[in-house]
């Protein structure tokens, strides 16, 4: 009886030791992975900051102004170019009146045909 219990204990000790060892091993692996991921994240974050700074440098107002002058025909907005939404109708060119002769036959029927295809 005692022998059986003892051997069971030894066996369970071995099993436990193996489990602990393998757990520790896999945890170390995980820790390495985590450390690597953290390092990657930090490096990526640093790269993002670097690119942010570069973007900001490339889009700084004085540079954009120089480039716009060189390559675009745009000018600063003048006061008379602002139009309030209510006043849009007086500024937009009039909408051309529909010309019934342009489409022969029944225009709505044609549209429906177009839908069926």
């Amino acid at each position: 009886m005692l022998k059986f219990v003892n051997s069971l204990l030894v066996l369970s000790l071995l099993v436990a030791a193996f489990i602990v060892y393998s757990l520790e091993y896999s945890i170390k692996q995980d820790e390495r992975l985590i450390a690597k991921a953290k390092r990657d994240a930090r490096e990526t974050r640093e790269t993002i900051k670097l690119l942010d700074a570069e973007w900001s440098m490339l889009t700084r107002p004085d540079r954009l102004q120089r480039l716009a002058k060189q390559y675009l025909k745009l000018e600063p907005v003048r006061a008379d170019q602002f139009v309030k939404p209510e006043a849009l109708a007086s500024v937009l060119p009039p909408r051309p009146a529909p010309d019934p002769t342009a489409i022969k036959g029944d225009p709505i029927a044609k549209m429906l045909e177009g839908l069926n295809q």
Partner: peptide, 19 residues
């Protein structure tokens, strides 16, 4: 002012003479 007013969202209102 002519340059920054549009950036600051100040809507211009021109008088008839200015138009």
């Amino acid at each position: 002012i002519a340059r920054i007013a549009p950036l600051l969202g100040v809507m211009p209102q021109l008088s008839q003479a200015e138009k």
